[in-house]
Design a protein around this nucleic acid. Structure first.
Lengths: 242, 242
DNA sequence: AGTGTTGCGTTGTCCGACAACATGATGATA
DNA sequence: TATCATCATGTTGTCGGACAACGCAACACT
């Protein structure tokens, strides 16, 4: 038996730049908000040329680990749930997921999240939700886009009430996807606004009376209703959302 | 009241490269698997120099939209759920989520996913799960790392059985996080292996008899058990997993 | 106060160059 | 003829230096 050697990796220098800086951020050596050295300084410290260092910086940029700040300098930034959700949902949408997959995920996750949301919902958040709901009701907008925005925002507020960044990130991704998919059918479903309003109202009532089962129940109904919207709009539920 | 103007943005050329190529991939003009033009060709086509084009390529690379293939060329690639999950979980872990947040998400999502998994589980997948389970049982490994791997793989197989890429991507992120968090406590929980084996066995039984409620129930128990592991290992559940 | 001006540091882009490497063609050898 | 070594070519990774555009701060001016 011969000894097997690992294919020794010689990662390009620009990747090393990325890895080193990422590790420093991870380890806490580079704290959030501090400015990265200028490109010229990085060149000195790494012993590389600007072209190479800059390629590494592009990787950091795309990874959302740094952010352009004052004077175009880079500042360290830990990606927040919104960034994570945005890139996740973008990749998924791009990957060609179907209406059905999005809907089913919604149907699987949200009702069970509602139990937690009901327990953890603060009075402050609840009144915020109620306010948004009322604003949506009173703004008698005919613009389908506004309806989608209001529907998605409702989900966002619920997700935020969970006080859990992991759940939040996952549900936010989902919310973006549901927004993208709703946008494609909302124009053809005239009664959508009323149905959404009614569903939200029932869910809010359940939240106010701290009734976990009712909250779950009406959320499931709400999501089921969204599915009916696809049928009304006559979109094939197995079509890709993009 | 003064009129407010949008801050007019002039994106740098390397970003334009990224956006243009991304749009081409999205629109389908660049199909998966086809090779990107060489850097020199891209320079000609965009009217830019290699340094600039390469910065754009680094963005595409980090976004997982292209992949190095034969002869180091770039090939178009739509990100699959594994890539999405990896970057999602990495960002979250980096964002400093706690053991409790990860655990709570598991507890919220998996039991309700089990109902769907039970319905959709194919005989083939089920026997695959059973095989892995038996292999884990018979490999009387003492290596804590192997135990974690087996536990995570079990979750992965369940998630895969859902036949839903959105759910899969979300649960995969979660699986990576649970792996990372388990790795930190498994060494201090000597009975973990047995408890995990027993839990898996019960879940598999429920899956075989197509009993959704039992599957949900034992999965909830399983996850609850994982939480007990944190207590045994005396880790503060509100600590960050990294 | 508010408004030019000037200067400096930094980033965005360009040019040209070369070594390292993979691929495919060429040629030598059995 | 088949196999293997060698070389030419194309592509990427890295380098060095260069310059324009831009942001910021300090200053001078009204």
């Amino acid at each position: 038996m011969e000894h097997k050697f690992e294919p020794l990796k010689k990662e390009p220098a620009y990747l090393k730049v990325y890895n080193v800086v990422e590790a420093e951020i991870l380890s806490g050596a580079l704290k959030e908000g501090v400015a990265l050295p200028t490109e010229a300084d990085l060149c000195d410290q790494f012993g590389l040329t600007r072209a190479t260092v800059r390629e590494g910086l592009r990787l950091l940029e795309q990874a959302d680990l740094v952010e352009r700040g004052a004077a175009k300098r880079f500042y360290v930034k830990r990606p927040d749930t919104e960034d994570v959700a945005a890139s996740t949902s973008k990749s998924l949408a791009l990957g060609g997921v179907t209406f059905h997959e999005v809907w089913e995920t919604l149907y699987t996750m949200y009702p069970s999240a509602m139990a937690l949301a009901t327990r953890r919902m603060s009075g402050e958040r609840l009144s915020q939700i109620r306010d948004k709901h009322n604003a949506f009701r009173e703004a008698e907008t005919a613009d389908p886009g506004d309806v989608v925005d209001a529907a998605v925002e409702f989900f966002q507020l619920i997700a935020g009430a969970l006080e859990n960044r992991v759940l939040l990130a996952l549900l936010q991704s989902l919310n973006l996807l549901i927004g993208a998919s709703l946008r494609q059918v909302i124009g053809k479903t005239p009664k959508a606004r009323d149905r959404i309003l009614k569903a939200q109202s029932r869910i809010i009532d359940a939240l106010e009376s701290k009734d976990e089962q009712q909250a779950s129940h009406w959320m499931a109904k709400h999501i089921d209703d969204l599915k009916r919207g696809y049928a009304v709009a006559e979109v094939d539920i197995n079509r890709k959302i993009l």
